[in-house]
Amino acid sequence: MNHWIKGVSSYAADIDGLFWLVTALIGFWFIVAQGIVIYFALKYRRKEGVKAAYITGKTWRELSWVFIPVVLVVMCDGWIDVATASVWHNVKETLPTADHKVGVMGQQWAWTFSHEGPDGKLGTPDDIVTVDDLHVVVNKVIHVDLQSKDVLHSFSIPVMRFKQDTIPGRSITGWFKPTVPGVYDVQCAEICGLGHGYMAARITVQTQADYDAWMKAVAAGATALPGAPAASPAPAAAPATQVPQK
């Protein structure tokens, strides 16, 4: 999976493992089923002087062609269920202690991120609010508080293997722990209106020192200096600002 989409969170490999398990099992049965269909189609094709048999499916020998595959497929389903349960428990039902908290607000058609300011608390006047530009520290557990201003959105960071709907009127907490510094894509994964396809953002995973420097620069207003006009296509992230909180 890493070959196509990098996995840079603590649980990315677990989710990729599930993906490959499901793909392998389905792939196996797909090949077996198609092989049998093709084999039978060739073996029992129309022949001169041979009349087609009318199969009623009443004998145990005939019924075994149904029941044996069903039992095997259900066993595979059980295998997937057992493997999924532990990953689901670790990713969705367990909430490790947060090192940092980020507020995520989905709205048509942008993501607004509230980062803890110098006081280290979210929801205070020194929070750093950005549009489409999320910054996190590598190897730290990040709690995201997901909300929506208008309609359903889905906050998706493919490289983190993180995806969670945001629902108007609800506050949903999710978590991830980034493991590799870099700049990655964020997207909305729930059709949310005309501009859904343009509801993209960036996440910057950086070292603590780089994060501190970024926060200091934003607090000083450095990133809000006039920039050169963007060439087409326009960049995704807006400059960071500090705005009063509700």
Binding site: M105, Q108, W109, V131, G195, Y198, A230, P235, T241
Partner: peptide, 22 residues
């Protein structure tokens, strides 16, 4: 398109127009 307008977190309509302009 280049975040000079409609990029403020509280500019709800501006953020919509920003996406459509792109």
């Amino acid at each position: 398109r280049n975040d000079t307008r409609g990029a403020h977190p509280n500019d709800t309509k501006g953020l919509m127009m920003r996406a459509m302009a792109r």
